[in-house]
Design a protein around this nucleic acid. Structure first.
Lengths: 233, 233, 233, 233
DNA sequence: CATGAATGAGAATTCATTCAT
DNA sequence: GATGAATGAATTCTCATTCAT
């Protein structure tokens, strides 16, 4: 979950998590411990939610731990009980976001029983749009402030975009092999595509529903198709 | 420009500058003033250069005035002698950059004696690439640290991108009227194009000459052409 | 008061204070909160005391937050935990002083069952002397550093003296109507009296008990009586 | 002059002053040197005037050397050529003020051919009022901000007031010996008088001519007379 | 004599993090 | 587990003073 890694006294949390999963244990203590663990993750969720909102509203730098505390109605001590640092919360949020988005992108398949490539692409686009739409605030931060932060955060973001790029380039390469994608420099066109998507999605998210999702997906698909497919008859 | 506005005792400097332009005077006084003014703007250049480098390396927020000072080998006081604030240096740098880039983009003309549109576009692309190549560090900041949180800075950056977007959308609209550009949502495709260019150019600048400029320009043109032109026979 | 307003997380403190007053609760929780609140206000008192001393010694401007910190044995952060600014501490101190002094001055009454005017005046003088004696440092600041340059502080001090002047002039006017006070310009004589008191009290406070309070009060009364009363037979 | 003491390279100034006084020397160099010395003291006067105005307007602390420079149309270097520090200019101004005021106060004489005491007092009061009226700005600073400054300045101001106090007390003592002044504590009544005068004069100066000088002097005299003279028949 | 660029010691304030209770 | 008071390093900015030219 990425969040787990952020907890300060890892020992304790580890124990708690193990117990949390050890549902079927029938020891008398279990009930109590379980409830404790639940309360624990509830608290964490609370903090994460608060952080997400404040970060989205004010950006990473302008957000102070105090802001998060206030919105979460928690105390400083509590915060550092669940997260080792302000950065860690942000990272946890980013991780969640990353997962959502990444799990929305499926590798394009060429086996006979996979549908037509274009439909797979449309599926990817629509799933990604769904994912970012569900995490608007966070997505906007990720897409916008991407490189504006602390060095270590930057690495995380960079890594994410690199993974994305690999998928994109992989797709392009495959498409070239299949004769669908025109000859081009993978690096450059990969960047062009990634940037295009980032900017357009931010714009879309910020326009706040000015264009329905499917219509927007179609615009993207047409654009991408034109940009990379061979102009066959 | 913009930089000049940051200097504190404008009156005197202005006077000095005027004298500097008062070419033919050969009095000893003149020489001294002239040298003083030169030294002054040299120092400013020094500070700007240092700021440019540090900002590019660490981003706006992570850069402290102390960082700039260290690299410029100047003292705190000197800095505030030339710029009223950290933000002001950044703004000065941005202004320079904006001018460079904007003057590189020429409105596409359709009069008979203007060359073919595609050539005009190529010209634009190549000029822009030339401009950003000459201001690598600055361009990277501008393209990356898109939104700078500091409200007034953000306005500046946003305004710049808006102007750019207007040109892009204007071009698209014109193309559509001429029947060259395919039917599409100007807002969305405008964003897609702007984002594509931003990302690709940053990538190119950071790869540090991995690809010659004309080759890179060609990749971009092919991409853009495919993305927006009608797929005529 | 005024001091309370300076505390940052007002909500929680307020709660704590309420609990503090929730007298009969004997739960362990209560005790803890109570002690916490006590420690809190103790700390504040500590800072105020330190500030009072340093301000009295060096004056408002020459005193740096660091000076206060040093004397209070607190750290920078702590200071700003209790007061939003250097000015705020000073204001808090002034407010306390103002209240003390003002509550010592009672309006002179002429109803039959009020004692003789001269006794009421003596009462006022002695009460004021008592008040300033109890707040020596503070009083010295107030009386000396009359105008504090920091605009908002100045307003506060000026307002205080104006209120005082109004009382003095009111008293003079009343006395004139009663035929006790000689004919004179209220503004001028008001100033003369106010200034006389300020200077003499500062001198007395600084002489550190060289003259007993009642003796000093008598000197003042004689002086004032001579200065303003009609020289009746 | 007090000012002389403030000059940085005392050697040079001393030389200049000597030469300035050495008017009748007929050496060929004289004219030039003389003009130089004149220019010199002109410059100094210029700086002093500028300082006086700015100090009066903004107070000692709020005034920066830059403010003075701007108003005097001089450069930093020039300033420090004539005065070793910001404080020194202020001191020079104070010194001038002191002299003016002090020379306005004449010791009360009791020899037969000296006029009546009360007339001598009136004379003193009117001369002092004349002096402060001529130096309004400076006088206001002196009377108001008296003790709000740097330690060393304070000493100067304190010393001035002490000299004044000595005269006042001397006068009182004399009066007592002559049987004119009532029995009282010299220290206390001295303070009362000094304070009364300070406050009233400031008020008068600030009211900007609301009351003519002689009328104001009369109010003061009546007040003082009542406050200190024996209430003889 | 005159200049004004350069200096650097502070000043106030913020805020992530720690730790005693 | 929970709390919130305490910390102090870091940041931006000011301004009296020096000194090379």
């Amino acid at each position: 979950m990425g969040v787990g890694r952020c907890v300060k006294s890892e020992g304790r949390l580890a124990a708690a998590l193990v117990l949390e999963e050890g549902v079927s244990l029938d020891e008398p203590e279990d009930g109590r411990v379980r409830r404790a663990a639940e309360r624990r993750s509830q608290r964490q969720e609370q903090l994460l939610a608060a952080a997400r909102q404040v970060f989205a509203q004010k950006g990473y730098h302008a957000t102070s731990v105090a802001d998060i505390l206030e919105r979460a109605n928690a105390s400083r001590g509590t915060f550092y009980l669940y997260f080792p640092s302000k950065r860690a919360v942000f990272e946890a949020l980013l991780d969640t976001m990353f997962e959502h988005i990444q799990s929305a992108v499926r590798r394009v398949r060429t086996d006979p029983d996979a549908g037509p490539v274009i439909d797979q692409m449309r599926g990817n686009v629509e799933r990604v749009l769904g994912a970012v739409e569900q995490n608007r605030e966070l997505a906007i931060i990720l897409l916008r402030e991407a490189h504006a932060h602390e060095v270590e955060l930057d690495q995380k973001v960079t890594a994410f975009y690199q993974r994305l790029m690999e998928r994109i380039q992989g797709g392009l390469r495959l498409g070239q092999q299949m004769g669908i994608v025109r000859v081009c420099d993978l690096q450059t066109v990969g960047n062009l595509l990634l940037g295009a998507l980032k900017e357009a999605i931010v714009g879309w998210l910020c326009s706040d529903g000015a264009m329905p999702r499917d219509r927007f997906a179609l615009e993207i698909l047409n654009y991408v198709a034109g940009a990379i497919l061979v102009q066959s008859a």
